[in-house]
């Protein structure tokens, strides 16, 4: 077992973990933050996307021990003081989700995308989300959701 300390959604946790435990299992099963989902084991689907030190990563392709000392944000930590993040709001407003399973990862990847490109084109949004699969929406309304968020984050309505 190895002792790790991570900050998740602003709260520090110190836990003993087996070195082989994947970060996504640590988040879900040890910390009980089950909003982050698992959709594959080949690092393709992106359902497990979280932010590590501010950047989107696939938490199924990291060991928990690798995250020692880092600061993580999961879907549960995105809204602040009960106010939805503009990306969350965009997904709701634009019907950017159906079954909702890819949604936490899709939202976290979109947050990351908008951090690096505040005003992406449709093409940039589509390529920016190449690491996230959705089987329900055909991506149409996901693109619209990200556009909504981009506009809102730049001070539009």
């Amino acid at each position: 077992m190895a002792e790790i300390t991570v900050t998740v959604n602003g709260k520090s946790y110190t836990r003993d973990v087996e070195p082989r435990m994947l970060l996504v299992h640590f988040i879900r099963d040890v910390l009980g933050l089950t909003g982050t989902n698992i959709g594959c084991e080949t690092s393709v689907c992106g359902a497990c996307t979280i932010l590590m030190d501010g950047q989107a990563i696939k938490s199924c392709t990291q060991l928990a021990v690798q995250a020692d000392g880092s600061s993580l944000t999961t879907i549960e930590g995105l809204a602040s003081n009960g106010d939805l993040h503009p990306v969350q709001e965009g997904f709701w407003e634009k019907h950017g989700l159906q079954c909702g399973y890819c949604t936490p990862g899709m939202i976290m990847a979109s947050v990351d995308l908008l951090q690096s490109n505040a005003n992406p084109t449709e093409d940039e949004i589509r390529h920016g989300l190449e690491g996230n699969l959705c089987r329900c929406t055909g991506y149409h309304n996901i693109v619209k959701a990200v556009q909504y968020a981009a506009e809102k984050m730049q001070g539009g309505n």
Binding site: S43, G46, T49, M52, Q55, A56, I57, K58, T61, Q62, A109, D112, L113, G128, E130, G131, N132
Partner: peptide
């Protein structure tokens, strides 16, 4: 390479 998440790690 990969996608934005993969490129971050």
């Amino acid at each position: 390479v990969g996608d934005r998440q993969v490129r971050h790690k």
